[in-house]
C-alpha cells in the first residue's frame, strides 16, 4: 500500500472537467485507488466519478490518495502530479 497527500490547487476543484480528467487517469492503473479528504473518514473509489463528486473536493482541500496493487506507487504519484498541475487551469 502506498499513500500521499496534496492540496487541490485549481480553482474549480475536483468538479466538472478536472474530475473527468482525474477519473480517466486513475482508470489507467490496475491498483485499487481511493481518495479522501484529510481528517475525514469518507473515502471514495478514485475511479468512480460519482463517488468523487459526492466528496465535493473544492479548491484548498487537502486530499489523501491511497493505492494498493502492482502499480500503486506510479498510480499515486501520477495522480498527485495531475492535481498539482492544476489541470491546466490558470
Amino acid at each position: 500500500m502506498y499513500a500521499r497527500s496534496t492540496i487541490v490547487a485549481n480553482r474549480t476543484g475536483l468538479h466538472a472537467r478536472p474530475a473527468s480528467d482525474f477519473i480517466a487517469c486513475a482508470s489507467k492503473f490496475k491498483s485499487k485507488i481511493t481518495i479522501k479528504r484529510v481528517g475525514e473518514d469518507d473515502e471514495a473509489n478514485a475511479k468512480s466519478i460519482v463517488m468523487l463528486l459526492s466528496l465535493g473536493l473544492g479548491q484548498g482541500t487537502e486530499v489523501l490518495l491511497t493505492a494498493k496493487g502492482e502499480d500503486e506507487v506510479e498510480a499515486v504519484d501520477t495522480l498527485i502530479e495531475l492535481i498539482d498541475s492544476k489541470f491546466g487551469e490558470d
Binding site: 473527468s20 477519473i23 482508470s27 471514495a44 473509489n45 475511479k47 468512480s48 466519478i49 460519482v50 463517488m51
Partner: peptide
C-alpha cells in the same frame, strides 16, 4: 460525455 463517464463509472 459526462453521461458516458457515469455509464462506465467504476464503483457502480
Amino acid at each position: 460525455a459526462a453521461h458516458k463517464d457515469i455509464l462506465f463509472d467504476d464503483a457502480m
